[in-house]
Amino acid sequence: MTTNIDNTNTSRRNFLRILGWGSFFTTLGVSSVGFIRFLYPNVLFEKPSTFTVGSLDEFKLDKTANYQVYENWKAEHSVWIVREKNRIYAVQAKCTHLGCTPNYFAEEGIFKCPCHGSRFRFNGENLAGPAPRPLDRLAIYIGNDGQIIVDKSRGYTFKEFNKKGAYAEV
C-alpha cells in the first residue's frame, strides 16, 4: 500500500514538474519568437520600390553602337539602364561581391567596383576580381502609357536573365 501511495506521489510530482518547466520553457520560446518577429516591422520607410525612368525615346541607341549605358538613375536609385538593340534592362549598381557601388567607365564599357576590384562588362557579366556572378538585374516593364517602369523589389540573377521581366522587348 505504501509503495502505491509513493507512486502516486512521485507521478503527481513528476507531472507537476513537467507542467511547471514545460510552461516556463513554452513561455520563453513563444516570447523569443515574438522578440524575433519584433525585429521585422511590417512597414518599411525605404524609397518606393517602383519608379518610372522615362519613355523609350529617352534611351536611344546610336546607329554604330551595340549598347548604351544610361547613368541618369544611378545616384537616386542605384540602377543603370542598359539599352541594347532589341531589349532594354536595368542593371543593379551593387557589386555581387560585397555590395559596394561600382563605377561605369564609358570609354571602356566596363563597370569597376572600388572595393575589391571586380570588373563587369556593360551587360553586367563579371570579367575579373572576386565577384562571384554577374551584376543582378531588376524587374523592368513598359507601362500602358509607354513609360518604362523599374521594380527594385524583384531582382534577377544571371540564370534568370532570359525570364520575362528581367528585360523589356523594344
Binding site: 544611378k74 542605384s78 559596394c100 557601388t101 572600388p114
Partner: peptide
C-alpha cells in the same frame, strides 16, 4: 552617401 563608394573602403 550610398551612391559613391569609397575607394578603397
Amino acid at each position: 552617401n550610398p551612391g559613391i563608394s569609397e575607394n578603397p573602403s
